[in-house]
Design a protein around this nucleic acid. Structure first.
Length: 500
RNA sequence: GCCCCCAUCGUCUAGUGGCCCAGGACGCGGCCCUCUCAAGGCCAAAACAGGGGUUCGAGUCCCCUUGGGGGCACCA
């Protein structure tokens, strides 16, 4: 095996919004490359835009990554040798390099007001031109510009993008991309308030933090050549660039929107990592699912755990085309991973949902329920609807539902009484003791198991759908089972009386 | 409007010039199993966007068209 160079990768979300599946996947791929190569996964916060910060967003990012199991090696909370890991604490660093670029003649001070720029933009749009900086301050005498800066005149720093020729950059998935330099703008590097913009900050951080692979969303593709140009202007070596495809809404037409997210919520889905736990999803399933949206291992393997992904992931097998989010398949993966859980693990994970629903779910009983619900639920919270009756003192089935289809209430009553009789003679009720004699009874009555067991299911669980009858009875216990059947007998008697 | 990216079943994808009259998975339909519901097993329907090239041969390479996506801020 070839000796691999440990990758240093940086996941740098902005705490200006919620963490969604797309950023989760970007984080995942970064994490995988770091772990696979024995490198470092770095978390940084791009919090330079004070106006857009959202309280709590920082915590949501960290909680989300933790929940997915993506622990970072360097970050705002754990520190590291290349900090600080909050861009808001790196202001002077960015200013220093911006100054260097100006000194090298690769950038310039710009004194244009936002109002003037807006006017220029509008005129350009009217003329059907691509909006871009018109170059006014670019032509300024550097010494004069310096004097105006020294005099305290408000200014920004802009990159002096080459006006001639073309720039060729290389993306790992797409190969070489060439753009005419005149299509590139003289982007702002440093704002009037002295804060760096993404374009400058990202390039500097990538260099200073010795980042080997920039793995990010394809929304950066258009400005990618600019970033490479800044690297080159500084005389720095470029990292390997990898631009991931975007996630489209389920229909495949268009990207996710607020409207779309709201519609999804109605169906019990969410694109926000934070919501997924409460919706009964396993982090294992989320990881497996998003890993496969834009990446594949071969033509058949689909089940992956995080450690397996660390072993098998490769950037070369990424798919550059956009992918529509498919929640149906997400549900499938969730069921798949639920079934792979150890029983005590399943019991532990399902417990909060019972408690939230108001059931006194004790560990011992949960452990007995786990095996009979494991293959019946696709979301953890489905367990409540499936097995809530185990924690109820009494169940209250609708008398009408007790009546066996094809039989009268009176006939059903007789079946219920005979069943009660058979079961009451047993020392204990479980599949081994109860099922054979009950099947004998079913045969004697000339009915089907479905008819008789179905009635008993309603009587004992209060539900039309439940885990297997006798397994359920074993957990409920003989006493309470008989009690519930007696209660059902009572309901049937009343039904017969009322009818007669 | 301009620039960039992308294009195989409804969806996620395999396919890197002959192994493909295109494989897997989800979903859908059918069957089996079955005390309900699941899970599981089996079977079926379902795609190379269109048009030009290159080549003995193209899903695979090139060009155009079309469609989709992204971007064009003192946001990230």
């Amino acid at each position: 095996m070839d000796r691999v160079i440990p990758a240093r990768v940086r996941f740098a979300p902005s705490p200006t919004g919620r963490v969604h599946l797309g950023s989760g996947r970007t984080a995942l791929y970064n994490y995988l490359i770091a772990r696979q190569t024995g490198g470092k996964f770095i978390l940084q916060l791009e919090d330079t835009d004070k106006k857009r910060l959202i309280p709590g967003a920082e915590q949501e990012i960290m909680d989300g990554l933790h929940w997915l199991g993506l622990q970072w090696d360097e970050g705002p909370d754990v520190g590291g040798p290349y900090g600080p890991y909050r861009q808001s604490e790196r202001k002077e660093i960015y200013q220093d390099y911006a100054r260097q670029l100006v000194e090298k003649g690769k950038a310039f001070y710009c004194f244009c007001t936002p109002e003037r720029l807006e006017k220029v933009r509008q005129e350009q749009q009217k003329k059907k031109e691509m909006p871009h900086y018109d170059g006014t301050c670019r032509r300024l005498d550097p010494d004069e510009a310096l004097r105006r800066v020294a005099a305290g005149e408000p200014h920004v720093v802009r990159f002096k993008t080459p006006q001639e020729g073309a720039t060729t950059v290389k993306d790992l998935l797409r190969g070489e991309i060439t753009v005419e330099n005149r299509q590139l703008d003289d982007i702002v590097l440093l704002k009037t308030d002295g804060w760096a913009l993404y374009h400058l900050a990202a390039v500097i951080d990538d260099h200073l933090m010795k980042i080997t692979h920039v793995i990010r969303g394809s929304e950066w593709l258009p400005t990618f050549p600019l970033h490479a140009l800044i690297h080159r202007a500084m005389g720095w070596e470029e990292p390997t660039w990898v631009h991931l495809s975007v996630f489209l809404k389920p229909s495949g037409k268009g990207k996710m929107s607020k409207r779309e997210a709201a519609d999804l919520a109605k169906d019990g889905y969410s694109i926000f990592i934070k919501d997924l736990e409460g919706l009964g999803y396993l982090p294992e399933a989320v990881v497996n699912w998003i890993a496969l949206m834009g990446w594949s291992y071969d033509d058949r393997t689909e089940l992956f755990t995080l450690p397996e992904l660390v072993e098998k992931f490769s950037l070369e097998r990424l798919n550059p085309s956009p992918a529509a989010i498919n929640f149906t398949k997400f549900d499938y993966f969730n069921g798949l991973h639920i079934r792979r859980l150890a029983l005590d693990d399943l019991a532990r994970r399902v417990r909060p949902f019972f408690e939230q629903a108001g059931y006194p779910a004790d560990e011992e009983r949960l452990l007995r329920i786990a095996p009979i619900i494991q293959e019946r639920i696709t979301h953890l919270d489905d367990a409540v609807a499936m097995a809530g009756f185990f924690f109820k003192e009494e169940v209250e089935p609708d008398p009408e539902n007790l009546v066996i289809s094809g039989l009268t209430a009176g006939e059903t009553l007789e079946v219920a009484r005979r069943s009660l009789d058979v079961l009451s003679w047993l020392p204990e009720i479980n599949p081994e003791t109860a099922e054979p004699p009950m099947r004998t009874l079913v045969a004697e009555l000339g009915l089907t198991a479905g008819q008789v067991f179905g009635m008993l299911r309603i009587a004992v669980t209060g539900q039309k759908v439940s885990p297997p009858l006798f397994e359920s009875m074993a957990i409920i216990g003989k006493e309470k089972v008989l009690e519930r059947i007696r209660s059902a007998v009572g309901k049937l008697e009343k039904l017969v009386e009322d009818a007669g």
